[in-house]
Design a protein around this nucleic acid. Sequence first.
DNA 1: AATGAATGAGCCTTCATTCAT
DNA 2: GATGAATGAAGGCTCATTCAT
Lengths: 222, 222, 222, 222
Amino acid sequence: MDVLKSEIINKSLSPETPERLLEAAGEVFAEKGFRNATIRDICKRAGANIAAVNYHFGDKEHLYIEVIKYAHRTLVKYQTDLGLDDNASAEERLKAFIMSFLLRIHEDGSPAWHGKLMLRELTEPTRALDTFVEDTIRPQFNLLNSIVKEVIGNEATIQEVRASSFSIIGQCLFYFHAMPVINRLVPQQKFKVKDIERLAEHISRFSLTALRNRDEGEEKYR
Amino acid sequence: MDVLKSEIINKSLSPETPERLLEAAGEVFAEKGFRNATIRDICKRAGANIAAVNYHFGDKEHLYIEVIKYAHRTLVKYQTDLGLDDNASAEERLKAFIMSFLLRIHEDGSPAWHGKLMLRELTEPTRALDTFVEDTIRPQFNLLNSIVKEVIGNEATIQEVRASSFSIIGQCLFYFHAMPVINRLVPQQKFKVKDIERLAEHISRFSLTALRNRDEGEEKYR
Amino acid sequence: MDVLKSEIINKSLSPETPERLLEAAGEVFAEKGFRNATIRDICKRAGANIAAVNYHFGDKEHLYIEVIKYAHRTLVKYQTDLGLDDNASAEERLKAFIMSFLLRIHEDGSPAWHGKLMLRELTEPTRALDTFVEDTIRPQFNLLNSIVKEVIGNEATIQEVRASSFSIIGQCLFYFHAMPVINRLVPQQKFKVKDIERLAEHISRFSLTALRNRDEGEEKYR
Amino acid sequence: MDVLKSEIINKSLSPETPERLLEAAGEVFAEKGFRNATIRDICKRAGANIAAVNYHFGDKEHLYIEVIKYAHRTLVKYQTDLGLDDNASAEERLKAFIMSFLLRIHEDGSPAWHGKLMLRELTEPTRALDTFVEDTIRPQFNLLNSIVKEVIGNEATIQEVRASSFSIIGQCLFYFHAMPVINRLVPQQKFKVKDIERLAEHISRFSLTALRNRDEGEEKYR
DNA sequence: AATGAATGAGCCTTCATTCAT
DNA sequence: GATGAATGAAGGCTCATTCAT
């Protein structure tokens, strides 16, 4: 009986059904993927009726699209400049970018559903990917490109800049794509914020060293 | 009609049912994931009856496990030393490793199902991951670690070596995880073997530069 | 066509789906046994969709359990004292017990599904048997024991009482277990209420005679 | 490997495939019933190929029929007079009949598959029941009737005799039909040969007492 | 004479969706 | 505006049976 009561209280005090559905759906889609997620599960977590998804969003796919948009809005809201002042050096800005990137897809050291969902979208793209790329990813990519270009210097070709950006992003994403494997290869405790900082440190150093000494590599390999 | 004909040809000329099932299942599992793959689809592609999976492999999960093993066997079979002689330098071996790694998970420029399946296993690990890590991944990881250690020099800690290996692998994997996004960010024709070579070139240079000048980074960031 | 019509009538006038499912499932389980009964058949008889069982009862096994409980409730509801007044003799009560027992598992002279289902549960016990024994059978058994004890007299051991009760019940059950054989050994018309009365008469007489003259048997056989 | 070897040895030393199939099928049919028994299981127990049943018996149903016939042949072979001499009294012959009946469907205290199978045939008759009744049951029934008639005396009607025979058989069968319930009502150790003797003792006494004092019952109840 | 592979029908269950209120 | 009941299309799996050797 108390369960029922608390559910009712929850219902009246918490956000309205559509937002509760979005939040619940975000978790479930992130965890199970689009097809393996069930509407029943989502509705149960949201404390909503089984027909609520169809009622508010039409069908499962439209719910998914709205979740992607919702995730983007949320990310944008929490996006900060990480305390950089305007005349920070390119090196500082790169390091800040990496740290921000890592933090955004982690939360309490484990990937938040926003991050997980994006990773899914990379690996198993749906129709939502197009808007997702244009709204969320490309701005970030352009920002990173401009930083990289500044570090390398103006003589760098656009191809070189892009490839270097991908090298940097690839390093970051690896720690989320491959977490199950990493944990098996190098058993360790849970990933904490502390570890994210160390990780950002490593990736920054590795990448900056590569970028700054680019001419050396060029001599030997071209 | 052609479908029928090719099926008949398949049946009479191609390998026996179990192998046809493994091959078909590999494709489908890679494409759809374990749960979204249907036995009906697999059997149809293999030109086998719907009950064939049950007969030869017991159930869907055991089929999947056998597919993972089969993929491992196939990868090992095609593994080569890429023409390195015994006294190749660490730099040469690193570049060969990267090239081999990229080639092994590509086929005609797009990820072969062996590669795709492994990526899936990274992102959505199943019970097969444990053996997969030990049989397939750890040996490669150890090999890479030893190469990296030789490049950096003996003073490197094990943590540094591992982090650097992850940075290298991360760059490689990015081009498979994120292919749909890459294609949207930088529209291009299909990924061909030629592109893989250029890619290996870039990753090698980027990584070697970072490794060789490691002490510089250390001064500035520690 | 009549089938269709009666189905429509059923749907609108008859009890709600869960009860219709219980009733239909009772018949089918009784007739075919748990494993041979098909959900399709049950749903068709209940005029319900194939997914109705899953929706209302979870799965086939839970439906079965509920059918057992439902049968118990139904039996209890129809249980009467058969018009005995409070100071009826033990003999009268035994005869009433037998008559009631026979009537309860018959309907129009042939075993109703409640009865059949119980017989099945005896022969092929499922997990439902435990509760079935405690809820339905043991109370009846205790009642019979007390009547038997009163007829024999207080000097009877508990073992003797039980064995005699089993002898009585055995005679009753035989006419349901073995009906197909009985009909072949002694061809006759359908079993009617009239026959049940005659049968109760015989079993009562046979058993009472045995119980009342128990000491005689004891002399000769012990 | 040893398993394989011993199987081969078994195969060559044990009876020929058809008989091994009959024996195995008897066990499985008795345990699971006709429909729940699987050909795979039967063949595995018989150490035969999955296609052996169809090869030797045509199909599952014909195998079943042959099992019933086989069970009859076996029963007849082991049937004895239990050491009665020719001028034994009706009472002695009744007791012997009961003992023989109980023993025939038990073996080592638990129902052998011959017995179990017959019980199944009573409850869920198949097309095999007709021959089964005529070949196996009716002779026994006639024998019992003649004994009962002798005990009661010649004035008994045929209806009375039959009803009494059924009362006797019913008592016997109860201990096999209802064993799971009996064990729950009166928890006890396993049923041993000793118990069967005691049981035969009780049923004999109960029934003889009833038969001998029949006129008393008649007075009161008719 | 006997076998292992292969078949297709049918079962239980799950799921997104729709209906009636 | 919102709900619980109901739907029908698959999906995984099992089974008796047949095929090819």
